[in-house]
Amino acid sequence: MRDTRTPDLDRYPELHSRWNRRTFIQGAAAGTALLALGGALYRLAGDDLTRAARAEARKDGRPRLPPGQRVIRQLRNMGGDEGPGDVKSFRLRVHGAVTTPFELDYAALLKLPQAEQSSDVHCVTGWSRLDALFKGVRVSTLAEKAGVKGDVRHVIFESHHGYTANVPFPEATAPNVMVSYRMDGKPFAIEHGAPVRAIVPDLYFWKSAKWLTGVRFVVRDEPGYWEVRGYHNHADPWAEERYG
């Protein structure tokens, strides 16, 4: 028996193109809706970590997870112009408004007082990685060794290919801010800033410059790579300071 929902296309051949078009649009719309629904379900189903983190609070009273963030298990590669990534050619310049500028190679960095800390990091694109164990040297240790002058107000993290990120001096010398070479007991992969990157956990992660080449102490603020491209100059995740 003929399907009564379909017109008799043999009898009315002029309806062919219209009917085919309608069927195509219906199919495309249904397919898109299914994909969207599937994607939403997939995201919601696998987000226990985010729900748990939202229920927690930090010692300073702020929620553990800043607004608009979701928890992921591994750092994502957000791109950038990579440095050479090897330890042999690594050099870190500590300079600017300091009494004793100096340069470190990788072995010299490992000989400085070391710190190890568990931190949460938050990317401006919306993901957060919790409880990452970072090992490295605190920026405050570098500042002390270099003899920072009294009028310094900002710290500029410098990387290969001219990338910079600016952080106010008090926040850059907080106890949880470091130049780090190890995460969760492993060296950083090249895409995550090997061999040494900055870690500034309480600001959006673009401030934690990868492929670090320098730490410069300055009197006047110098907005960095993303800051001059429309991103917020300060980048506090709890105030959602994403864009300037």
Partner: peptide, 15 residues
């Protein structure tokens, strides 16, 4: 969708 995957490389870490 760079926050969901690495569009340039397939990376691995073995221990």
């Amino acid at each position: 969708h760079i926050a969901d995957w690495d569009p340039n490389f397939v990376s691995y870490t073995r221990e």
